[in-house]
Design a protein around this nucleic acid. Structure first.
Lengths: 345, 345
DNA sequence: TATTAGCACTCTTTGGCTTCGAGTGCTAAC
DNA sequence: GTTAGCACTCGAAGCCAAAGAGTGCTAATA
């Protein structure tokens, strides 16, 4: 969409959006003239606002109230008028500290980041752990008491899947070790589509004695490689209650309900591809029950491993601030991941 | 506490509690006489209620309203008057299906159970994954690209910890394998307190060449064995919005805030020990900000591995139903875990 | 002595009414 | 094209009266 508004209209639109974002109250011509000195009188602004309303960028909750932005108004604002706000120094440090702690599992780092994100923005944060294309890296069968084994499957992305599973009584630790060795030799670096029946047959032939154990192992491998499990972490849900739009309990329930629909969230975040910032506003979700929410998403990526950070709030969201913070976080995160994984994925 | 009320007072108290639980409205003498035929007139019931109020079991929101139970009233009710409700057949089947799916990681099963729990009770559910005393079972060092290794630590409880960590360039897959072997031979079955400096020195002596890798390995082992990490899953938070007490946004915010305080929840659930059902009501939490919530907790256990399921709701909670469901779930769960782990933990 | 009927009283809830004020749109003047 | 002036609209807030639920007290009853 190309900008189509003249400069004064843009200024007025920006004023309405920004004022409404910070006060949550409809804004009138008088206030704009006073607070955002444009050198014209309220009457002029009234005329302009009437135009903007006719063009669909503003609307009036009721006749005798001021104007508020429509979804289209927000869209124009984020596309043409807004400048992402660079986080301040203190915030940057906080985020860096969070992203840099190598001492922990990656999933934990991401989760922490989500919490900080929520804290800084005062909206709900959603975060997917980094996940790759599902490339096999390693399997380990560990004896675990009589008749049981722990199966560990490690993917190239660093994700680990594990399962406790029964094995036939006769199998020894040594057997498990050899099975692991063969599987690792044959499968390393393959994706689920690469693991064709020829390879499987080959392995079964080589390890014909262990058919039963192999079945179990393949089951978990299969699962690990396909599981677009996209674990989602949520944070800061309570902070969203500060927003006056959620004083309305019905709306709040919708939001909380959504946040528990793992599948929906996955789809939502999955629809963000690549790096960069996406913003989705209200009805753009194409869902009956999501009309008053906006979401800013940002992808981080290193080679084939990627994930998404998202901030969910009311349509009246501090887009500039959120976009700025997200941009900073994902950049830091990508950088750290690059260091952690080296070039080797 | 021994029951101290005469039979008629008990009946009246039970009537008030149960009616209030189902309607959320204060209840008057007239209604009790009508709905819970005790064969006496409203006037008599009024007298009894005045007694109960004086004794602290009931209270009046305001002069011209009916009575509602006080915390003490609820306490008396759950201790002496309530009978846990057996879940109906359909509910039992649902729960069984959920608990029985061996096909998945235990953590996932528990999480699923939490969701079902929330769904059946219409309150928020909290769940800790089963976790044991922190007994070492197995370590596996897996080469992971140049200069990196994946460290996997498996505990006797079936919990798995993993970390990607840099290793000195010269270390080969074979080296990692031997380190794993030595550690496994020496440490199997030990707890963090058992791993004394004598053993550690022994291992360092034996593997003196690998000092650096050992440092990293020990770090994760240490962490895995001590991490009372008590991952907590939450479910059904939105369903609690149906309760009229949470129409009040302030109260709701308190609740959501609490639910995000992982530490607090851990402490709370950790305070439940052993099997059986615990009920905590309002101020019994000993926290300024938790006055209107109740929690029913139930422990499941097999040998040294245990976890807790909890349901969190308003003090006006369907205690009998929740307690019944929880009892059933934890029994099923303990049984399934026993099957899964055999006697071997 | 325990129970009950009757009644005056209390206190919240509800709905209607008015007032207030912010903001608009229109018209006419600049 | 811009602005001042003005009548008009509509929600929010405050006020009051009526309705209704429930109580506590007293006196009558079994």
């Amino acid at each position: 969409m190309i900008p189509v508004l003249d400069e004064r209209k843009e200024k007025i639109l920006a004023a309405v959006v920004e004022d409404f974002i910070s006060t949550a109250e409809p804004i009138g011509s008088r206030t704009i003239a006073r607070k955002y000195g444009l050198g014209v009188s309220p009457a002029t602004i009234r005329n302009e606002m009437a135009d903007l309303e006719e063009m669909g960028y503003l609307r009036q909750p009721h006749t005798s109230a001021g104007r508020i932005p429509s979804e289209r108004g927000y869209r124009y604002y984020v596309d043409h008028l807004m400048q992402p706000e660079e986080p301040d120094k203190q915030e940057k440090e906080l985020l860096q500290k969070c992203v840099r702690t190598k001492a922990r599992e990656i999933a934990t780092v991401i989760q922490q980041t989500g919490l900080i994100l929520a804290q800084l923005t005062n909206y709900a944060a959603l975060v997917t752990s980094p996940s790759g294309k599902g490339v096999y890296r390693h399997i380990q069968l560990v004896p675990f008491g009589p008749g049981q084994a722990m199966v560990l499957v490690v993917l190239a992305s660093g994700e680990v899947f594990h399962r406790l599973t029964p094995v036939p009584e006769g199998i020894t630790a040594y057997d498990l070790e050899s099975i692991s060795a063969v599987l690792n030799a044959k499968l390393r670096g393959l994706t689920v589509t690469d693991i064709k029946s020829t390879i499987i047959k080959e392995i079964y032939a080589e390890l014909s004695y262990y058919r039963q154990v192999l079945d179990l192992a393949f089951e978990l491998i299969q699962e690990a490689l396909t599981a677009r499990e996209e674990r989602i972490f949520r944070g800061g849900i309570h902070s969203i209650l500060n927003e006056p739009e959620f004083k309305n309990v019905e709306r709040l329930r919708t939001l909380l309900g959504l946040l528990e629909q793992e599948d929906f969230l996955c789809d939502l975040l999955a629809s963000h591809t690549g790096q960069g910032i996406d913003i989705r506003i209200g009805r753009e979700f194409n869902r009956e029950d999501v009309r008053e929410l906006s979401m800013v998403t940002a992808g981080y990526q290193i080679n084939s491993v990627s994930g998404v950070l998202a901030v969910l709030g009311p349509t009246r969201m501090r887009y500039a601030r959120v976009a700025g913070i997200l941009r900073y976080v994902t950049e830091s995160l990508s950088e750290e991941l690059r260091k952690a994984f080296g070039g080797e994925i």
